[in-house]
Design a protein around this nucleic acid. Structure first.
Length: 618
RNA sequence: GCCGACGUAGCUUAGUUGGUAGAGCAGCCGAUUCGUAAUCGGCAGGUCAUCAGUUCGACUCUGAUCGUCGGCUCCA
C-alpha cells in the first residue's frame, strides 16, 4: 500500500482554492505574510500572519472576496525564476516565510522537515541532491506564490467551497517558531458533495461521545477532581466492566494470566526502565515519602517486568503472558485533553508477553488475530495497521542498537505480511525502545482513530535483565511484546459511543430492558416481570440482566419516548393482555414491534444475544 | 504549553446601547390511569465559572485565574 497518493483533479482544485483564498486575503490585508497552503483531506488550509486576529465575520468577508475573484475567471499563470531572483522577489513582496523556504531550497534542495507531510506539495520543487536552481511560481490575480503546482487553468474551474474554521499553527510545525493563523476551507466538486460533508460533520456532532456521555449518564468530569480525570457514572461503568469481561474471556483463550500491580512506584524503577529521562515532563510530579520519590505510574510495563523477575523462568514457561487492566496517569499537556479520547488518567487493556526470539513472530501474529476478533465483534469493518519505524536522522531520540532494531523490524514485518491485514509504514513514529504497530480503526461514520498499540521491545530485556534458562542450561534474553488491543477504557468507550451512536448492543447496554406498565393497575404485574428477569440466569458482567421498571405516573407514550431517548434495546410493555397471559409486548428501539411473547421467550432471546454478543435480527 | 473562541439553574438556552435574571426539559407535589416517541396544574431551583478592577450601579466593560471547545505542538 503506497503512502504517496497521486495528485487527483480534486486535490489540484483544492490546492488552487488555497491560492484563491490567499489572493483574497492579500487584497483585504495587503500586509499579510504567507506561510504554506496545501490541499488536505476535504479541502485545504493556508497559514498566514495577519495584522488582525481573524473572526468568523472575517471568514465571511474572505469568502465573499473569493467568490468575486473566482467569477473574474482569473488565470493561474506559471512562471519560473532563478532561485536568487526568486528570493529577491519575495523579499520585495515582504514575504519572510517564503524567503525562508526559498533559502532552504537553495541550500538543501528541500523544505522538508522530518516527518512533515502534506506541506511539501505547497512549496515543493523537484530537486536533485544539491540545491535547487529554478523555482516555479504561480500567479493568481495579484497574488504570487512559489509552488510546484499543478494548478487549474483559471478560477472558474473551482467547484464549491466554504471556509470552515480558524486555528493557530506553528510555522513549520515547530512550537519554538511563531504561530500563524491557519484558515481551513472545504472544497468539493459540487454542492451535493459539500452538503454531504457538512452533514457528516453534523452527524459526528450528534454522535460526539461528550454529548452522548452526558445524555446517557455515562461519565462526568469535575473541576474539583482535575482536568482530564474522568469519573465514571454507573451506566459508563457497565461499559467498562463488560469490555473487561470480554477481554478476560478472549485473553483466557489466548493463554494469558492475570496480574495486579500498584499505582505508584519509586523513581528507581523508571530510571531502570529508561522512561524517566525521556518522559519526566509528562509524568505527574512525584510524591515525596520518607526521602524517597514515588511516581504515579504512567505505564504498566516495568511493573510487569518485576513480576517476571520475581521467579526464575525456564524455556518451558514461555511464552508468559501477563495481563492487567492497569490504571495509569500521564500529565498530558492541557491543550491535548479531549473528553475521553485524551485524558490524564486512564485504564489500559494492557499485557506483556515474554517470549523467546523464535516465538516472537507467532506471538505478534496471535496478538493481531486477537485484534481482528474484537473488530469483528464490534462491527468495525475498516481498519489497518501503521508500522512505526525509527527516523534514521534522529537516532539520538532512540536507543542506538542498530542490529536489534533491525531484528525487531524483520519480525514485525513478517508477522504483518503473514497476517494479511492492510498496513502502512511511518518513519519516525517508533517508540524509543523499539518499533511498533498502531491499529487504526474507522467508526461507522468514517472518523479514524489510533486505538491500540503493539510493540516489540528488546530494550527492556537488557535494562531489566529479563532472562530464561534454555534447554542448554544457559541464560538467554527474552523478547517482550507490549500490547493493548482495546487501548484504554476511556478511548475505546469514546470510540464505541460514536460507533454505535449510543445505541449499544444488548450485551453492552447499561440498561438492557425497561418494563413499561400501561396504567397504574399494571405496576404489580410489572414488578413480577422485573423479579423474574432479575432472577434469570444470564451471564453479564453485572451478574444478571440490567433492567428497569418505569412505574411513573405517566402515559405509556411518554415512557416509550423516554426509553427511546436513553436508547434502551428492549421496551417491555405490559397491560391487561400481558398480565393475563404472563407475557410482555416487546418493542425494539428502532421502533419495531415484536408483539406479545411469553416472558420466558424474551429471556431466551436476551440470553442468546448476551452470550453471543450479537443482537438478533428483528 | 501556544493561538483563537466560549463559560447564565442538572440539561438546552433568552437576556436590547451597564439599572442585581426569563423559559423549556429534568426534579418535587397534586390531579390524571391512558396500548407503542412528550396529559394537565402547581412548587422549587441561579452569589450569571472564580477573583479583582472601572462605575452611583456589572450577567453585560477591563484584567487575572479556572474550565470547555477548534486547531498547533505532544501522545512512552
Amino acid at each position: 500500500m503506497s503512502m504517496q497518493a497521486e495528485h487527483s483533479d480534486l486535490e489540484r482544485m483544492r490546492h488552487s482554492t488555497a491560492h484563491l483564498m490567499a489572493a483574497a486575503v492579500q487584497s483585504l490585508w495587503p500586509e499579510a505574510k504567507f506561510g504554506v497552503g496545501p490541499a488536505v483531506k476535504n479541502g485545504f488550509y493556508y497559514d498566514m500572519e495577519l495584522p488582525v486576529s481573524l473572526t468568523t465575520k472575517d471568514l465571511e468577508r474572505i469568502e465573499q472576496k473569493m467568490r468575486e475573484l473566482k467569477n473574474k475567471k482569473l488565470p493561474y499563470h506559471r512562471l519560473e525564476l532563478g532561485v536568487d531572483e526568486a528570493i529577491g522577489e519575495m523579499e520585495k513582496r515582504h514575504q519572510p516565510f517564503k524567503v525562508e523556504l526559498l533559502k532552504l531550497l537553495k541550500e538543501k534542495g528541500s523544505t522538508a522537515v522530518a516527518q512533515e507531510t502534506g506541506d511539501d506539495d505547497a512549496v515543493g520543487v523537484s530537486q536533485g541532491a544539491g540545491g535547487v536552481e529554478t523555482i516555479s511560481f504561480y500567479q493568481t490575480g495579484d497574488f504570487v506564490d512559489l509552488c510546484r503546482g499543478p494548478h487549474i487553468s483559471d478560477s472558474s474551474q473551482i467547484g464549491v467551497f466554504k471556509l470552515m474554521n480558524i486555528a493557530g499553527a506553528y510555522w513549520r510545525g515547530n512550537e519554538k517558531n511563531p504561530q500563524l493563523q491557519r484558515v481551513y476551507g472545504a472544497v468539493f466538486n459540487n454542492k451535493e458533495d459539500l452538503d454531504k460533508y457538512l452533514w457528516q460533520l453534523e452527524e459526528a456532532k450528534r454522535r460526539d461521545h461528550r454529548k452522548l456521555g452526558q445524555e446517557l449518564d455515562l461519565f462526568t468530569f469535575s473541576d474539583d477532581v482535575g482536568q482530564g480525570l474522568p469519573l465514571w457514572l454507573p451506566n459508563g461503568t457497565v461499559l467498562r466492566e463488560e469490555l473487561e469481561k470480554l477481554a478476560k474471556e478472549e485473553e483466557r483463550r489466548d493463554g494469558y494470566v492475570r496480574v495486579a500491580t500498584p499505582h505508584i512506584t519509586k523513581d528507581k524503577l523508571y530510571y531502570r526502565s529508561g522512561h524517566l529521562p525521556y518522559y519526566r515532563e509528562d509524568m505527574y510530579a512525584p510524591l515525596d515519602i520518607e526521602g524517597e520519590e514515588y511516581f504515579l505510574k504512567p505505564m504498566n510495563c516495568p511493573h510487569h517486568h518485576q513480576l517476571y523477575l520475581a521467579r526464575p523462568h525456564s524455556y518451558r514457561d514461555l511464552p508468559l503472558r501477563l495481563a492487567e487492566y492497569g490504571q495509569v496517569y500521564r500529565y498530558e499537556q492541557s491543550g491535548a485533553l479531549s473528553g475521553l479520547m485524551r485524558t490524564r488518567g486512564f485504564s489500559q487493556n494492557d499485557a506483556h508477553i515474554y517470549c523467546r526470539f523464535d516465538q516472537a513472530k507467532d506471538e505478534f501474529l496471535r496478538v493481531m488475530r486477537l485484534h481482528a476478533r474484537y473488530y469483528d465483534l464490534m462491527g468495525i469493518q475498516e481498519y489497518y495497521m501503521r508500522f512505526s519505524k525509527p527516523d534514521l536522522n534522529k537516532l539520538d531520540k532512540y536507543v542506538n542498537e542498530p542490529q536489534k532494531w533491525l531484528d525487531a523490524m524483520v519480525i514485525i514485518q513478517q508477522a504483518m505480511d503473514e497476517s494479511g491485514y492492510p498496513y502502512i509504514e511511518a518513519e519516525g513514529e517508533a517508540a524509543f525502545y523499539g518499533p511498533k504497530i498502531d491499529f487504526m480503526i474507522k467508526s461507522v461514520i468514517g472518523n479514524e482513530y489510533a486505538i491500540s498499540t503493539n510493540q516489540l521491545d528488546f530494550l527492556a530485556t537488557e535494562r531489566f535483565n529479563l532472562k530464561y534458562i534454555g534447554e542448554d542450561g544457559l541464560e538467554h534474553p527474552v523478547y517482550v511484546i507490549h500490547r493493548a488491543p482495546l487501548g484504554s477504557h476511556e478511548r475505546f468507550v469514546a470510540f464505541l459511543i460514536e460507533h454505535y451512536a449510543g445505541a449499544f448492543p444488548t450485551w453492552l447496554a447499561p440498561v438492557q430492558a425497561i418494563i413499561i406498565p400501561i396504567a397504574e393497575r399494571h405496576n404489580e404485574y410489572g414488578r413480577q416481570v422485573y423479579q423474574q428477569l432479575f432472577d434469570a440466569d444470564v451471564p453479564t458482567s453485572t451478574g444478571g440482566l440490567r433492567i428497569a421498571l418505569d412505574d411513573d405516573s405517566e402515559r405509556m407514550q411518554k415512557k416509550i419516548r423516554n426509553a427511546q431517548l436513553k436508547k434502551i434495546p428492549y421496551m417491555l410493555v405490559v397491560g391487561d393482555k400481558e398480565a393475563e397471559e404472563g407475557a410482555v409486548a416487546v418493542r425494539l428501539r428502532n421502533g419495531t414491534d415484536l408483539g406479545s411473547m411469553p416472558l420466558a421467550n424474551f429471556i431466551e432471546r436476551a440470553k442468546t444475544e448476551i452470550k453471543t454478543r450479537h443482537d438478533l435480527e428483528a
